[in-house]
Design a protein around this nucleic acid. Structure first.
Length: 1024
RNA sequence: GGGCGAUUAGCUCAGUUGGUUAGAGCGCCGCUCUGAUAAGGCGGAGGUCCGUGGUUCGAAUCCACGAUCGCCCA
């Protein structure tokens, strides 16, 4: 059909056949900006009941833009903020950027071509810090632009940047408080260490995905000759040759049996069941034996007595049952050194290269040393056997370098005393999905002390100043620093290295000058403090732009609010991030909040899995299946992407791609077509909607109003549970009802410009657009602008969330039953091979209790003249027990009754019941199925049975031909390209002359002015 | 090794407190309706609901054990 053009008298702007999502979205974006829609929404909600959401900071370390995996979370954030805004809640909308720490440093190092800490220091820490800030600035710009394109409404320009002096000061306060409680300490322990980054990694950095990867290492069986035992030796197994020079002991399982082979080699018997042994002893009998260390000739090992120690954990699953112990190069080894008072040799420096005292190994890396050590052992006859071994091994999450273990001094937060409080706080949180809450519990229960120090440059400077007198000074603010500084304040540009290092302070215990430790802090301190630093916790006075300090100055205009503000907005009602944040941001938030305030910082959490490609594979650059946000936004549009994210349950990865996007676009067409249908007919009818009007004389309209009310209720319910798959389901179910029931049933009313029908449809469409707006803000606002009246707000987001209204549940059930009957009617017709164009005489419906008032509707829908409700007469009866009733009643006897019923061994009673096996059952206790009699077709489902007559008489046949003819003529109209309003003249062949009995009806159906019989073989039409 | 999830149609997934014939979307085949629809409707093919055992009148659903996959921890 032709699209009516918008004339001056027409109310609604015509819609094209298909939406162009990306184009439409660009228009809406520009208009939102120009008409200040978001500002007006915030103004409207200001001062109303508030809803608090904290945004997890996006690391601002790349200028390549976002990937589609970032946009799932951003979509959730926007969907629920928009939903709450529609409901009138006042919100903050503060976006955040994570700006310092290894993520940023490593990217800058790469950009600058630096490859070690020495090169960074040569480059200069001040210049390096400036480059970090530049990267953050540019990265934030790109992220902001793309987020806006996604439709994310945030308070852009007032973002928080974690490298702000204010943020840093709040962490200082936190650390000072820990120190006062005695929970901050310096630990000397073995930790995972990245030799490239030159720093240790914390437990939660190791918990990131991609850390454990398959790695191929040498697998060595090395001979440790026993002292005082001629030609006897221990055989140890190791996959880290570089640790052998640090060997100080060998551990055996005291309970296991060890055997000496005729070669003099001692191993666990269980490991070598095929071998023969000349002597067998228990592991405990070996304990105390001394052996020659593999590198006793190097200086560090000289004078060390190597001996055999017992260790219950020695595995008999792999190796030889004798474990080489190097306390300076392994965590468990280090713990054993404390128990057995073993010396600790740390063989490599912070870049993983051997120290000078290791002679010929000096300067080689752990990797290079491996080959040399293998060769050396072989030469000296100490290598029993060598092969290659593939195992899971931790790698640095940023630079992918295999980690080593080093014993170093780091700063830790003791968690044992806090653990019960953390668990208690987590118990108050409502997690979606619920099992993520268990994950957090699990993490909290197994948590080791938090290593917060990093031996790096551009990060949170730890405010720790240990003094030679033994006192550890921890300062809690910049003011305190200024007060206690002995010099250097004039050069303090911001609270970062190098500037902050040049401000020594006076020791509060002895008065001597002390300097800051060189370490910076874990990035999760930066992110975890956000609910305190951005909300003005304990800040006496509101400071305009008070958050925009230090490195953040000029990047944001965020204020530092006062404590009353914090009281209002803390804790968050809701936060959402990806699953891995349980052990990262969700954890650091919880931790810092429990320390400072004793409460959980959030009440509800929504977590989600990761984004996959459309085949379910992880997106990887190397696989070539990644999709950049920019490309997806411009090719499929933001609404389609948002829909894709929302449709998927958060417990499973979203399968993202252009194939599912195409499917979504097609499904969205039903809504679009419904709106287009309305617009076309409303314009023809010069219809003017009346917002709020729901009175009507028609039952079908009343049904639509009720159905629309239920839509609002269903959507609210799903949004309130933060479960977007149900949002999508509820919406699609409604659109289906609207299009395939209401509009289809009402077509003739629209042709006749029925204002009640137009009003009902307008109401339903407006409501649909309102309730789906959080998910698809662009399409929703586009349609809203087409549908709205002049008295309504210009954006759907300025229209208050709709009331559900009174929902006529009974009517909804009635129509649901009508639709079930119609479906069965079609099925029965189909079985009898009677197409819908052929009218039928009679239909009987049994088992319908609610649909009885809708007989005419059913008849019309199925083109059946008489619709009766009552018992279906049947050729045969099949009776089944109604299980929910008879199951509990009969128990074990049910089987026998069921069998008897199936065999037909029953007697029918008055009122529809039966007698079987001596029991009498009422009509409600059994289910009856019927076989069709001659001349009837039958279909049934659940308790409904529908029977239609299959016999045709002349009148029915003739009517069938009228429908065929109408169909044929309309097809011809369509093929001739006639418009909706064109009138035609029809010439029929002589054989169809009898159909003129229905002349008026045909004229009406095909918009004919005249029908005549002429000398033609087939019907013909011409425009008049 | 421990914990948490998952396993249902060719694909992607639903499946309420245990109940009769396990569903939807997409894809495939046939039919059909249509003056919004590139759509819709009906029917069909396609399921050992991962397996085994148990509880129960009755299990995709509850329990136990096992398998496979994923995530986390060790």
């Amino acid at each position: 059909m032709n699209v009516p053009s918008l004339e001056s008298t027409e109310m609604f702007q015509a819609l094209p056949q298909y939406p162009d999502h990306p184009a439409l979205e660009e228009e809406i974006l520009a208009w939102w900006e120009e008409a200040r829609i978001f500002d007006r929404l915030r103004e409207r909600n200001r001062g109303r009941a508030h809803w608090s959401f904290f945004d997890g900071p996006k690391t601002a370390n790349t200028t390549d833009g976002l990937g589609v995996h970032h946009l799932w979370g951003r979509t959730y954030k926007d969907v629920f903020q928009r939903y709450k805004a529609l409901q009138g809640f006042d919100q903050r909308y503060q976006n955040g950027f994570d700006c310092q720490g290894l993520w940023v440093e490593v990217k800058v190092e790469r950009d600058l071509g630096l490859n070690s800490k020495r090169e960074i220091e040569e480059y200069g820490l001040a210049a390096f810090a400036r480059r970090c800030r530049e990267l953050v600035t540019e990265s934030a710009r790109v992220v902001t632009r793309q987020s806006i394109r996604l439709g994310q409404w945030m308070d852009w320009g007032n973002d928080y940047y974690t490298f702000s002096d204010t943020n840093i000061e709040y962490i200082w306060r936190f650390l000072k408080k820990l120190h006062e409680r005695g929970w901050l300490y310096q630990g000397h322990r073995s930790t995972e260490w990245c030799p490239r980054c030159g720093t240790s990694l914390s437990q939660h950095e190791l918990s990131q995905s991609d850390v454990y990867r398959d790695k191929s290492d040498p697998s060595l069986f090395v001979r440790f000759p026993l002292k005082g035992r001629d030609r006897e030796s221990l055989i140890v197994w190791t996959t880290t040759p570089w640790t052998l020079p640090a060997n100080v002991a060998a551990a055996v399982n005291p309970e296991a049996e060890y055997g000496r082979q005729d070669t003099g080699e001692w191993v666990a018997v269980e490991r070598f069941p095929e071998d023969t042994f000349v002597e067998r002893v228990r592991g405990s009998d070996l304990v105390g034996l001394e052996y020659e260390g593999p590198y006793d000739h190097l200086q560090p090992a000289q004078g060390i007595v190597h001996r055999v120690i017992p260790w219950d954990e020695v595995s008999l699953e792999e190796g030889t049952g004798v474990v080489h112990i190097a306390p300076g190069a392994g965590t468990e080894d280090f713990e054993l050194s404390k128990v057995h008072d073993l010396p600790v040799l740390v063989p490599v420096d912070e870049s993983g290269r051997f120290l000078p005292e290791y002679g010929w190994l000096h300067g080689t890396s752990t990797v290079e040393a491996a080959d040399q050590i293998v060769g050396d052992l072989r030469e000296r006859g100490l290598l029993e056997h060598a092969e290659t071994y593939v195992h899971r091994y931790p790698h640095c999450w940023r630079c992918e370098t295999p980690l080593i273990f080093r014993v170093v001094d780091d700063w830790f937060i003791a968690v044992d005393e806090l653990r019960p409080r953390l668990l208690e706080a987590n118990a108050s949180v409502q997690w979606t999905p619920a099992f993520y809450g268990k994950r957090m519990d699990d993490w909290l229960r197994n948590l080791g002390d938090w290593n917060i120090s990093r031996k790096r440059y551009f990060g949170l400077p730890l405010p720790i100043y240990p003094c030679a007198c033994g006192h550890v000074n921890v300062i809690g603010s910049k003011a305190e620093m200024e007060e206690r500084a002995t010099s250097g304040l004039d050069q303090l540009e911001e609270l970062h290295r190098p500037w902050v290092d040049n401000v020594p302070i006076r020791c509060e215990s002895c008065g001597e000058e002390v300097r800051r430790v060189p370490e910076v802090g874990d990035v999760w301190l930066d992110a975890g403090i956000v609910p305190f630093s951005t909300l003005g916790w304990q800040n006496p006075e509101w400071i305009p732009e008070g958050y925009a300090t230090g490195a953040a100055k000029g990047l944001t205009r965020a204020d530092l609010p006062d404590h009353a503000y914090w009281e209002k907005w803390f804790p968050a009602h809701w936060v959402t991030e990806m699953r891995e944040q349980i052990r990262l941001w969700f954890y650091s938030l919880l931790f810092m909040s429990v320390v400072l305030d004793g409460r959980a910082p959030y009440q509800q959490v929504l977590g989600h899995e990761d984004v996959r490609d459309e085949h379910g594979h992880e997106m990887h650059g190397s696989r070539g299946n990644t999709i950049e946000a920019e490309e997806a936004l411009s090719r499929m549009g933001a609404d389609v992407m948002r829909w894709m994210y929302c449709e998927q349950a958060p417990t499973q990865g979203v399968k993202f791609g252009y194939t599912p996007a195409g499917e979504i676009k097609r499904r969205l067409l039903t809504l679009w077509n419904s709106a287009k249908f309305f617009v076309d007919y409303a314009n023809v009818a010069h219809f003017h909607p009346q917002p709020g009007k729901t009175e009507t004389s028609q039952a079908l309209d009343r049904w639509l109003y009720a159905r629309t009310g239920k839509l609002v209720a269903d959507m609210e319910d799903a949004y309130d549970r933060f479960w977007t798959p149900d949002v999508i389901r509820a919406f699609m179910a409604f659109v289906d009802d609207l299009s395939n029931w209401y509009i289809r049933r009402s077509r003739r009313r629209f042709w006749s410009e029925d204002a009640e029908a137009l009003q009902a449809l307008w109401h339903a469409l407006s409501r649909s657009v309102q309730v789906i707006a959080p998910v698809m803000p662009f399409l929703a606002d586009h349609l809203w602008r087409v549908l709205r009246t002049d008295d309504q707000p210009d954006s759907v987001f300025l229209e208050p969330w709709p009331e559900r209204g009174a929902i006529d549940a009974q009517l909804l059930e009635e129509v649901a039953e009508v639709r079930a009957i119609v479906e069965l009617g079609r099925q029965a017709r189909g079985e009898a091979g009677l197409k819908l164009r052929q009218p039928l005489r009679r239909m009987v419906v049994q088992g319908a209790e609610k649909a009885q008032g809708h007989a005419a509707e059913i008849g019309e829908e199925l083109r059946i003249k008489e619709v009766e409700f009552g018992p279906v007469e049947a050729a045969e009866l099949r009776v089944k027990p109604n299980l929910p009733l008879l199951g509990p009643k009969l128990g074990k006897e049910l089987g026998a009754v069921r069998a008897a019923l199936q065999a037909g061994e029953f007697e029918q009673l008055e009122g529809g019941g039966v007698r079987v096996n001596g029991h009498e059952f009422g009509a409600d206790e059994i289910l009856v199925e019927r076989g069709a009699r001659e001349g009837w077709a039958l279909a049934e489902a659940d308790s409904l049975t529908v029977a239609v007559t299959t016999e045709l008489d002349d009148e029915l046949r003739k009517e069938g031909r009228v429908y065929d003819l109408t169909h044929q003529l309309n097809t011809m109209r369509k093929e001739a390209g006639l418009a909706l309003t064109n009138r035609i003249r029809v010439v029929l062949p002589a054989r169809d002359g009898d159909l003129l009995d229905y002349e008026d009806r045909i004229k009406d159906e095909v918009l004919a002015t005249e029908i005549v019989v002429g000398q033609v073989e087939e019907p013909q039409i011409e425009m008049v």
